[in-house]
């Protein structure tokens, strides 16, 4: 299977001791990868390094074989992402916000902008400015921006933040649609474990900056009643090991 994202020995420790330590991970084409971990485990740090917002102390991330540190433009060409809070320029309309991004891609025209606004249910707010948007609407616009360029890889950090139930279902459907129809690979972090269980086909658990385990969702569900049980057992086991070691 084609390797889409290759993370090798990724390390970045902040002054407060938090961060990530020696993370190794491979993501394959068609994966909807769920990145699970408690608060402060290092999920966002890893995703920020993957998208070039933060530089690692050690290690590298390759997307389609291009290093994010060395060949940024090539590595990010087929990537769409949404990191932490979905940001938009408050003084530009939803359409103009997407138009700003569209200029970086030769094959994204106004029709495509309308398409993604339709896909995320934002078409009726096309000419409105995000300063009047609710958190959920901003999140939808952020998701529209992430899939605008028809990316082959989409990296989403807490994509369901601020969305209502209807919004969550819509976005889940959108992810599954893109994964099935366009073979888009997804790398998603979320606290909503039930949603991860329904959406993702591979799960990785990160705890205290270290990768604990990577397993396919069907395999996990063979041994555990729910993904939540698996997650709690993984984290508890690790917590116990580290407390025993002390």
């Amino acid at each position: 299977m084609e390797k889409v994202i290759e993370i090798k020995n990724l390390t970045k420790v902040y002054g407060n001791g938090r961060g990530i330590k020696d993370i190794n991970l491979d993501i394959y084409k068609g994966d909807i990868f769920g990145f699970l971990g408690p608060n402060g485990a290092g999920k966002t740090t890893a995703m920020k390094i993957m998208t070039g917002l933060v530089r690692p102390e050690l290690g590298d991330v390759k997307i389609f074989g291009y290093s994010v540190m060395e060949e940024y433009e090539l590595a990010m060409e087929k990537v769409g992402c949404l990191i932490e809070i979905a940001e938009a320029y408050p003084y530009l309309s939803a359409f103009d916000n997407l138009k700003q991004l569209a200029r970086y891609y030769s094959d994204v025209d106004n029709k495509r902008i309308d398409e993604v606004l339709e896909l995320t249910g934002m078409i009726k707010y096309k000419q409105e400015k995000p300063k009047k948007f609710s958190l959920g609407m901003k999140q939808r616009l952020g998701l529209a921006a992430a899939v605008l360029s028809r990316p082959k890889v989409v990296i989403l950090d807490e994509p369901l933040n601020g969305l209502d139930v209807e919004g969550m279902i819509d976005i889940r459907k959108m992810i599954q649609y893109l994964a099935e129809r366009e073979q888009t690979t997804f790398f998603i972090s979320s606290h909503l474990i039930h949603d991860v269980e329904l959406t993702c086909n591979r799960i990785g658990v990160i705890y205290d900056g270290k990768m604990l385990n990577v397993e396919s969702t069907p395999n996990i569900l063979k041994n555990y009643a729910t993904l939540e049980n698996y997650f709690v057992s993984e984290v508890e086991r690790n917590g116990r090991v580290s407390s025993c070691a002390r």
């Binding site: 998208t51 070039g52 917002l53 940024y72 990010m76 990191i83 932490e84 940001e87 970086y104």
Partner: peptide, 12 residues
């Protein structure tokens, strides 16, 4: 405003 991220995560 954190809006710098909008541009920084594009292929540029």
């Amino acid at each position: 405003q954190n809006s710098m991220r909008i541009t920084l995560t594009r292929p540029v």
